[in-house]
C-alpha cells in the first residue's frame, strides 16, 4: 500500500473539520482564533499535497502551490499579530474574552 493524494486530502479535511468544530463550539475568543489557524493550516496541507502529486514538470514538483502556502503563512502571521492586538484592546475595555459577553459594537 502506498500513499495517495486521497490520504493527504482526508487528513487535511479532518483537520479543517476540527477547526470548524472548534470555531462553532468554543466560546473563548483566543481558542476560536487558534482554531482559525488550524483551518488555515489544513488548507496549506492540501495545497502542498496537490503540489507534490501533480505530474512533475521537468522532473520536479510544481512549486507554484508552495509559493501560495508561503504567502498564506506570511499573511496568517500578520493576521495573528493584528488579531491578538485587537483582543488585548478588547480585553482592556471589557475585561472578558468570552464571546457571549462581547455583544456590543460601541463601548
Amino acid at each position: 500500500m502506498t500513499l495517495t493524494l486521497g490520504h493527504f486530502l482526508l487528513v487535511s479535511g479532518l483537520l479543517f473539520a476540527l477547526g470548524l468544530a472548534g470555531v462553532m463550539l468554543r466560546r473563548n475568543i483566543i481558542v476560536i482564533f487558534m482554531c482559525l489557524e488550524m483551518m488555515l493550516n489544513a488548507a496549506n496541507l492540501s495545497l502542498v499535497a496537490f503540489s507534490r502529486f501533480r505530474p512533475p514538470i521537468d522532473g520536479m514538483p510544481d512549486y507554484n502551490a508552495q509559493i501560495m502556502v508561503f504567502f498564506i503563512i506570511t499573511v496568517a502571521a500578520a493576521e495573528v499579530a493584528v488579531g491578538l492586538a485587537i483582543i488585548v484592546a478588547l480585553f482592556r475595555a471589557k475585561q472578558t474574552v468570552h464571546v457571549e459577553d462581547l455583544n456590543s459594537l460601541k463601548f
Binding site: 495517495t4 486521497g6 502529486f53 505530474p55 512533475p56 520536479m60
Partner: peptide, 11 residues
C-alpha cells in the same frame, strides 16, 4: 476520485 499515487521525480 483522488486515488492518485505519488509521481516519481527525476531529480
Amino acid at each position: 476520485d483522488f486515488h492518485i499515487a505519488k509521481p516519481a521525480l527525476a531529480r
